[in-house]
Simulated assay, not measured.
Amino acid sequence: MRPTFNHTGFSLIEMIIVIAITAIVGSMVAVFLRVPLESYVAQDRRARLTDTADTALRRMARDIRLALPNSVRVTTVGSVVYLEFLGTRSGGRYRAQGNDNLDFTNPAGDGSFDVLGPPIDMQAGDRIAVYNLGIPGADAWAVGTPGDTLAAYTGPTGSVSNIAIASKQFPLASPGNRFQVVDGPVSYVCNPGAGTLTRYWGYAIAAAQPTVFAAATPRALLANRVSVPVGSPCSFDYQPGVTERGGLVSMTLNLSQADETVRLVATTQVSNQP
């Protein structure tokens, strides 16, 4: 005699009812979760934009603080803003009297001088600046003129206590016997059309501020998504005489994504005591 089994299941109508109820419950849950999820995504987006803008402005501020005194300059072409300065790595004091002092009176120039204090770390391609005032007759940007305040370093790399330079008569002596070691020009370019903030370096010093850079020029992208809102998406402003011995660089950067814009403003003091 075969055993009898009772088979149970569900009908098509029951399955449709379950699907309908599940869809209704899911729709109700989605309504309540949509706003918190959108808020979380928006907050995360704003945090990322703020972090990018803050990192870029902090990098700019760190570089600007090391700028050669009186070397900062700003120009604008269309909506693109350019900020340029001569970066320094170190500095010290030169010997003004005695053995191998820096001579400012010899028209033929001086080719070396002793460093007062600890040795200076020098690298190939460095330049020595003395009393750069950023005015005609004492301007580091006046390349190849009598008012040029830069001299090319010609000595060995490494730590040195005597600095050899291409023979030069500097225009003016520093009241504090100071000199700076310049490693080259640096430009920050904010281009709203391309949506980028880019750092350029490793190019030649020129009297006119460059607004076009060769493809081989070293560069680093600091920020993208630079916005193009009504008004100024980015601005650099330099005021050279805010204090007796310093200037002020003001920087504004707007970054946008998904119809949201983050605006950060920062200021950096520039030491203009040569």
Rank of each mutant, 00 (worst) to 15 (best):
R89L: 11
S71T: 07
S79Y: 09
R263T: 13
P3S: 10
P107M: 03
G246S: 13
T50H: 11
P146A: 09
Q123M: 14
T149C: 08
V249C: 03
D259R: 14
F213S: 02
I165Y: 04
N272Q: 02
L102S: 05
S112H: 12
V77W: 03
A108I: 06
L222Q: 04
L264F: 11
D259S: 12
Q257I: 11
N224L: 10
G109W: 01
G137S: 12
Q209M: 08
M28F: 06
S112F: 07
V270R: 02
D237G: 14
I205W: 00
G247N: 07
R263K: 13
R59P: 08
L133H: 04
V25H: 02
V249M: 03
Y200Q: 00
R89N: 14
R178E: 04
G98A: 07
I120W: 01
R48A: 10
L33N: 04
V230C: 13
T4N: 09
M1L: 12
A20W: 11
S159N: 07
D63Q: 05
W201V: 10
P240M: 08
G158W: 01
D54R: 15
M1A: 10
A194R: 09
G134P: 04
Q209H: 03
G195Q: 00
R45Q: 11
I135H: 05
G176Q: 10
Q257E: 14
Y131F: 15
L83E: 05
L86K: 03
D51S: 15
G26H: 00
F179G: 00
N99P: 11
F85H: 05
I205S: 02
L68K: 03
A108W: 06
R2G: 02
G87S: 15
S90K: 01
A204Y: 01
V181I: 15
R59H: 14
L150H: 05
V182N: 02
T76C: 07
V249K: 02
L66Y: 06
P171G: 09
A47L: 10
L102K: 08
M122E: 06
D148W: 09
A42H: 04
A61T: 14
E38Q: 12
A67L: 01
D126G: 01
L86D: 00
F104Y: 13
A124K: 09
T211C: 05
A142F: 01
T75K: 06
S232V: 12
N132L: 07
R65P: 00
P229E: 06
G176E: 15
A151L: 09
P146D: 06
D51T: 14
V25F: 09
R45P: 04
V115N: 03
G125D: 02
F236G: 03
R225H: 15
L37K: 04
Q239E: 12
L255C: 05
E244P: 04
S271G: 15
V230D: 15
P175A: 07
M251K: 10
P3H: 07
E14G: 04
P233F: 13
D237Q: 15
V143G: 04
G111E: 13
T149W: 05
M1E: 11
